[in-house]
């Protein structure tokens, strides 16, 4: 049986999710038993001219060039995977959407900004059909492996649609709100094993929100901790700004 041909690509991102794959350690050897990696710029020089069984695309679409690239990759792939927060939900790139594009272009590129035309940040599914989603910033290795197994077996993967609090309680952590810190756990999709809170950090919401987040209740909870509404809004938007565009684009690209 020939192994499925798998390729990695990156749009606007830090390439940290691809690094997570390279950092798998011995587990990577088991994964490589199952697949034939034909293109992966971060770890190999070879390129592949043909089609892919699976393409994992990291990063978000932030300009016309990346939109064209993504559409071309989609055209060459049987299965397309949104790999990591930037691809899955827009991630931190979404923060750009809070600003005027011309103004933010000037802020980053100064006088040359016209040479770098930019667009509102979009996660992959707002541009093309996405078959599998790997959330998290960076991708969480156990989930990455789980999704790969589902892809290779041709099974759908369901990202948990309950909040991080569930896994956090399973781990019997002291709640961040009891420690006096405002945490995004109550509105953020689980699946990370609450790893940040396990390590004494708050949840930043990198996995995106559950499908029906109880946002008003969450804002009320945060407000009790003497946090300004501006900071609450920033916490909500740090990883989740691209949600705003969801309604406008959904119908266009889903076949």
């Amino acid at each position: 049986m020939t192994k499925p041909k798998i390729a990695f690509f990156d749009l606007s991102c830090c390439e940290g999710c691809q690094l997570q794959l390279a950092n798998m350690g011995e587990l990577l050897l088991d994964v490589l038993e199952l697949v034939d990696v034909v293109e992966f710029r971060e770890v190999m020089s070879e390129k592949w001219e043909g089609n892919f069984d699976v393409a994992l695309v990291e990063g978000s679409v932030t300009d016309d060039h990346s939109e064209e690239r993504l559409k071309a990759i989609r055209g060459r792939s049987k299965v397309l995977v949104a790999f990591g927060a930037c691809a899955a939900t827009g991630g931190v790139n979404g923060m750009k959407n809070s600003f005027d594009l011309e103004e933010i272009g000037k802020y980053v590129y100064g006088a040359d900004h016209k040479s770098f035309p930019t667009r509102k940040t979009r996660p992959l599914h707002q541009v093309v059909k996405v078959d599998y989603t790997i959330n998290n910033c960076p991708a969480y290795i156990p989930e990455l492996v789980e999704v790969l197994k589902h892809i290779l077996k041709g099974l759908p993967y369901a990202v948990p649609d309950y909040p991080v609090c569930v896994e956090c309680k399973f781990n019997e952590n002291v709640c961040m709100y009891e420690r006096g810190a405002a945490c995004m756990g109550p509105v953020t999709r689980a699946g990370c094993g609450s790893q940040c809170i396990n390590n004494n950090n708050i949840c930043y919401g990198c996995r995106g929100m559950v499908s029906n987040p109880r946002e008003n209740a969450a804002r009320d909870i945060m407000a009790k901790y003497n946090i300004t509404p501006e900071l609450i809004a920033k916490k909500m938007e740090m990883y989740n700004k691209c949600r705003e565009e969801e309604k406008n684009v959904k119908k266009e690209h889903h076949h």
Binding site: L27, D30, V31, L34, V145, E146, K149, H150, K153, Y162, P163, C165, V166, K169, F170, C175, G185, P186, V187, R214, A217, A218, I221
Partner: peptide, 24 residues
Amino acid sequence: VGCGNCTNVCPTCYCFDIADTMNL
């Protein structure tokens, strides 16, 4: 906020979900 804390910490809640996971 629908976080599920109240049921997860409850000494008498017993609902569960079952899912299959493949090995590598």
